[in-house]
Amino acid sequence: MIPRVRRITAVCALGAALAACGSPDPAGPARPAPAKSPVSASPAASRPPVLAPGPGGLTPVFEHGPRTLGKTVALTFDADMTADQGPRAAAGEHFDNPSLIGALRELKVPATVFMTGRWADEYPTEARGLGHDPQFEVANHSYSHYAFTDDCYGLPRVDAGRMRSDVERAYASLHQAGVPHALPYFRFPGGCYDQPALRALSGLGVTAVQWDVVSGDAFATDADAVTQQVLDGVKPGSVVVMHCTRSAAPTTERVVRTVVPELRGRGYRFVKVSELIGESTGHR
């Protein structure tokens, strides 16, 4: 059931910090590139599972998988970059984290990466590599990483009339970067959404993907504290939110290298979000 108004209440330091990067750039979501719907723009060989729309076609929301179908957990990583952070990237700030991706590959951990279109524009080679690696699945995190509600950790807000085009523009950027099959999953910037935002995306065919475990890795300097927060929060079917941006989440690789063997020792199996959604819909 989709509530009337739904927001993640856990503090998201990353969203607040990204908001301080500058004022909204009219060259960002204000001029969306034309794109088809996500499913038709990036058709997969077999369509990934999605949740059924809510009443009136409202965009469905997924938070975690079944608790009773075994010890599965999905690690998800937000590849965040706002529409106005180009000058910072040009000055040498790193919004990517190749060593983290390398650690996931080394540990053989499947993962879901929610990528902004602006990130894909900045790092097309890395976006293409993730999109072609069967260990990963790439999903949509908006083009601009601007908020879809008011009062979302200080992030600039996308106008209601441009929400749909911001998501479509992200799919266009992922496709342009070489991601062949961006999944029909969307994560709201900051995790902030309400019924008008869900309604604005109705008809796109996407499932909004949230989480039930906040890692706390955004701007964290104590990897042990982040690790403990993840280990304390994980339950069967959990979705963990983390970040793969070096400047914004410098401890995440260390956290992953500790969390993965510990959870495996507890009997957990790492899966992608698509598998958890498939379990929830009966398409296993």
Rank of each mutant, 00 (worst) to 15 (best):
A90S: 14
H175A: 15
E137C: 03
V213H: 12
V158C: 11
P134S: 12
R6H: 12
P60E: 02
T258S: 13
Q176V: 13
G57C: 08
G70W: 06
S40N: 02
L155H: 09
R7G: 01
P34I: 05
E63M: 07
I8D: 04
V230P: 09
D212G: 04
A45T: 13
S99F: 07
P53L: 00
P236L: 09
S142K: 06
V206D: 00
H141Y: 12
S165I: 04
V226M: 09
A218Y: 05
L155G: 07
R257A: 09
K36V: 00
P49I: 00
V271T: 03
F77G: 10
E253I: 08
E137S: 04
C152R: 13
E137N: 05
K71H: 06
P189A: 09
I8F: 02
C152P: 10
E137L: 03
S46T: 15
T221N: 10
G233C: 06
T149Y: 03
G15P: 06
G54R: 02
A89I: 10
Y268F: 14
P43W: 01
V214D: 00
V271E: 05
G233V: 07
R162M: 08
L155T: 08
E279C: 03
R88T: 06
A147Q: 07
Y171P: 01
S40V: 02
A90I: 08
R264L: 06
P180T: 12
G54W: 02
K71W: 01
M81A: 10
G282V: 03
P55F: 05
L14Y: 02
H243I: 03
P110T: 08
A182I: 06
R264D: 06
V138Q: 01
Q135E: 05
V11M: 14
I8M: 06
A35Y: 09
D212W: 03
E168N: 03
P66R: 02
D217Q: 07
L198P: 00
S215T: 05
I8G: 03
F77C: 10
Y153T: 03
T9C: 04
W211I: 02
R162C: 03
S173C: 12
T245H: 04
R128K: 15
P184F: 00
I101C: 00
F136A: 14
C192E: 05
